[in-house]
């Protein structure tokens, strides 16, 4: 049972339940050092239902799948990745004052899941390579067009997906190290 993924998804949905809750939870540069919890809660906040819906769909599918394959590693990832990704965004993108969204963490889970499945013989390698390719295309597209678009909603932050992708590679490293053979991972599906 991928309970950690479900818990985070539920928390993200609940963060939109109350008016003004976002202001207390969003990752904000000015107060982040004094209110460190925002490094975790900021990823749960979303600016619109569409933003929440698509992020939860990717996070739930990839996170749920990977948590069933490597529960301990994914649960640890959900603890360490949010502050690491948040800190990376603030360090690289000096203009960003506020950050919100689960997709950085979700990108990491997608990358880790694809890398894990690519190393297993019984899985379709072209399909999982395509998943990695899709993540690369998304990052490239955002990096090239993000600064030129009056974005409906908010400014996309490619750094979040790049940092998420790197965090996903580290997560894959943990999973690979803990298992002597990735082929020993339990089958899902």
């Amino acid at each position: 049972m991928p309970w950690a993924t479900l818990l985070v998804a539920l928390a993200a949905v609940l963060s939109r339940a109350g008016p003004g809750w976002e202001d207390g939870l969003v990752l904000e540069r000015a107060v982040a050092s004094a209110q460190a919890w925002r490094f975790w809660t900021g990823h749960l906040v979303h600016v619109s239902s569409g933003h929440l819906g698509w992020n939860i769909a990717v996070f739930g599918a990839a996170g749920g799948w990977l948590e069933m394959l490597a529960p301990r590693a994914v649960r640890l990832y959900l603890l360490w990745a949010p502050p690491v990704i948040g800190a990376a965004i603030f360090a690289v993108d000096q203009e960003i004052g506020r950050y919100a969204g689960l997709s950085g963490i979700a990108a990491g889970l997608v990358v880790a899941l694809a890398l894990t499945q690519l190393t297993r013989r019984e899985e379709s390698r072209p399909l999982w390579a395509a998943v990695l390719g899709l993540v690369a295309v998304k990052i490239l597209y955002e990096t090239m067009s993000g600064s030129a678009v009056l974005t409906e909603g908010f400014r996309p932050v490619p750094t979040a997906h790049i940092a998420g992708g790197i965090a996903g590679c580290i997560l894959f490293g943990f999973i690979a190290r803990r298992r002597r053979s990735l082929a020993d991972l339990p089958p899902v599906g």
Partner: peptide, 11 residues
């Protein structure tokens, strides 16, 4: 400076 941004999976 201080502009809001976010990570969005997008449709």
């Amino acid at each position: 400076p201080g502009y809001s941004g976010g990570g969005a999976a997008g449709s």
